[in-house]
Computed example of a mutant assay.
Amino acid sequence: MVQKKMNYSLYSSSNNTHKVNSSVDNSIFLPTQSYKKIKTSLENLEKSRGKIVHIVGAPGTGKSTNIFKALDELNLNVYEISTSLSNPQARSKEVFCALIKDLKESLGVATKEEAYKKLSKYDVVLFADQFHDKHLLKKDVIGFSLWTRNVGFKSMHFYLICIREFIKHQKEFRKINIVFQTAWRVRFRGKKYDLFTDFGVFSRIILKILGKLSHVVEIKYNTSETISIVKAHFKDVDEKKIRKYIKKYGCKPRFILQELENEK
């Protein structure tokens, strides 16, 4: 678990040079309309409890970038959930137990009820890269997204366990604000897609349902915003080249930045 100020280091590889996983990685940032919506959604959490916010967006749109920038600017007291799995084929119950075990150990408590009570002291409990992509941050561990990729739709049972836990401990969860960096990744013909954003009407229906249960903010950019974001990192790049990559990837700045980085 990572408490405020979330000062763990940027991971960098050939595929992730421009991926942000903490507030200290946002040395170059361009506010967009999506960012303003996120900041507005989070700014009242300090004085409220029991709120659930889902930040959704297709891969490459910068969910981490926007979340950490907003949390840092708002100076919220944040507790980031982190868990590591060792078995890529673990059952959902085992994954849930590992999450609770890590939570209790990090907070120095004996029961999950005590852990929930401690979490209520924070403005935000965050599920982001330290939970989803821990395998990219640390060697020899399995992050949640890698686990779901391995077990497929069997991971649905994990969500059912979480819903049951939420219902069972409603009293405790009414005192906790939770922010989810939310993605449901699927692969099709070698490309990565997000179930919440990349499947047209079907995605809209899912987001509508999710919005009935919580507050949802979708990160998306227009062409002009995408060009501005890319130029903030590569000032001399030709706009025609950026538009070529937009045609290839859509308005997903991280993928475009990675292409330009590889060209160096």
Rank of each mutant, 00 (worst) to 15 (best):
M1C: 11
M6F: 06
M6G: 11
L10N: 05
Y11Q: 00
S12P: 02
S13M: 03
N15D: 12
N16E: 08
K19D: 02
N21H: 06
N21C: 12
S22I: 01
V24T: 04
S27Q: 09
F29C: 05
L30V: 14
T32R: 07
T32G: 01
Q33G: 10
S34L: 07
Y35D: 04
Y35L: 05
K36Y: 10
K36P: 01
I38Y: 06
K39A: 14
S41I: 03
L45C: 10
L45D: 00
E46G: 15
K47L: 08
G50K: 13
K51P: 01
V53M: 09
H54Y: 14
P59Y: 01
G62Q: 07
K63H: 11
S64H: 04
S64R: 04
N66Y: 11
I67S: 06
A70H: 07
L71N: 02
E73I: 03
L74D: 00
L76Q: 00
L76V: 04
N77G: 04
V78R: 03
V78S: 00
S82N: 10
T83G: 06
S84W: 04
K93V: 13
K93Q: 14
K93E: 14
C97R: 12
L99R: 01
L99A: 04
D102L: 04
L103D: 00
L107V: 09
G108D: 00
G108E: 07
G108W: 10
A110I: 13
T111S: 13
K112F: 15
K112R: 14
K118W: 06
L119R: 01
S120Y: 15
K121G: 07
V124T: 06
Q130C: 08
H132I: 01
H135Y: 10
K138H: 12
K139N: 14
D140T: 07
D140H: 13
F144V: 12
L146H: 09
W147H: 04
T148A: 09
T148W: 06
V151K: 09
K154N: 11
S155K: 06
M156C: 06
L160C: 06
L160H: 14
F166L: 14
I167L: 13
I167D: 00
H169N: 11
H169T: 02
Q170A: 12
Q170T: 08
K171S: 12
K171Q: 10
I176T: 04
A183T: 07
W184Q: 05
V186A: 07
F188K: 09
R189Y: 14
G190L: 13
K192H: 06
Y193N: 07
Y193E: 03
F196M: 05
F196L: 15
G200C: 12
G200L: 08
G200A: 11
V201R: 11
S203M: 08
R204H: 12
I205Q: 11
I205C: 10
I205E: 08
I206F: 11
L207W: 03
I209R: 12
L210R: 03
K212T: 09
H215Y: 14
V216G: 04
V217N: 07
E218T: 10
K220M: 06
Y221S: 01
T223V: 13
S228Q: 12
S228I: 02
S228L: 08
V230C: 03
K235T: 05
V237Q: 02
Y245W: 13
Y245M: 05
Y245V: 02
I246Q: 02
K248V: 03
Y249F: 15
G250Q: 07
G250Y: 07
C251F: 01
R254F: 00
R254L: 13
F255G: 00
I256V: 05
L257Q: 03
E261C: 02
N262V: 04
E263G: 03
